[in-house]
């Protein structure tokens, strides 16, 4: 099975994100970078599928030369090929990113045949546009479902069942291949690279494509931090002795 994972290089989640003085971008000086968490699960899932049934995992990203680090990381956990649509690394609007990815997929498929499955993260951890995967799937005329936290292949890998969480359970989608899925963290627990994987990833030959896309209709004007909610925290006490005061507070809300 031929699987493509589209990933994005983002600042490591959890860190405090600061903005450059002019508000045009994130201040990256003190940040570590990683693969957006949903997409790390996409790569893990793709590798598991090919480990079971054979095939090849290609990882594709749009970004500056530094995004090659994330392609190498994917190779260190089992991906076979890395493709970089090389830009100057500045943030692109979602339509533009989708156009560039669509063009890249078409060019890769023209050379080596269609991908059976294309995986996206449900949304990127940073800009959170919630649309790039859907736009690419629509442009390719392929079925796409978002929010997927479980994938099961059936009928000799010609169809799949995909699970998405809803309140109190999950809903199931049944798709024929080729198909596109937007996946979420929780799909699996991604592995850490082995020493052998790290060494192999150094030898990964990253194929580079030139971007071929025009800007879309959304233009970033300024990034800024929200006004921090300063709360006058009432310290109710220390340890178990504070339980009565805590229950008084809970009782104020009518919950006791």
């Amino acid at each position: 099975m031929r699987i493509l994972c589209c990933i994005k290089r983002v600042p490591a989640p959890g860190a405090r994100i600061n903005v450059s003085a002019d508000g045009s971008s994130v201040d990256a000086a003190h940040l570590g970078f990683t693969t957006s968490p949903h997409e790390e699960c996409a790569v893990e899932e793709a590798v598991r599928i090919t480990e079971r049934g054979g095939g090849e995992v290609t990882v594709l990203t749009v970004g500056g030369a530094e995004a090659g680090e994330q392609l190498r990381y994917a190779a260190s956990v089992g991906a076979h090929r890395g493709v970089l649509v090389l830009t100057d690394g500045s943030p692109w609007d979602p339509q533009r990113t989708a156009r560039a990815l669509t063009a890249a997929v078409e060019s890769l498929e023209a050379a080596d045949g269609a991908f059976d499955l294309i995986l996206f993260g449900n949304e990127s951890a940073d800009s959170g546009g919630f649309q790039v995967g859907v736009r690419v799937a629509c442009a390719l005329g392929r079925a796409v479902v978002n929010g997927i936290k479980g994938i099961e292949l059936s009928q000799g890998e010609a169809r799949l069942r995909a699970r998405r969480e809803i309140e109190g359970g999950f809903e199931v989608y049944e798709l024929g291949l080729p198909a596109v899925l937007g996946v979420k963290e929780g799909l699996n627990l991604p592995r850490y690279p082995t020493m052998r994987g790290r060494l192999a990833s150094k030898k990964l030959e990253i194929a580079t494509l030139a971007p071929d896309s025009s800007a879309g209709g959304q233009r970033l004007r300024r990034l800024h931090r929200p006004v921090e909610t300063v709360s006058d925290t009432a310290i109710l006490g220390q340890g178990a002795d504070a339980a009565a005061a805590a229950v008084d507070a809970i009782a104020e809300l009518g919950l006791v």
Partner: peptide, 15 residues
Amino acid sequence: VQWGGSLLEDADLAP
């Protein structure tokens, strides 16, 4: 919102 709400983006949207 970006970053799930820890950063805000002002943007123009031109159909």
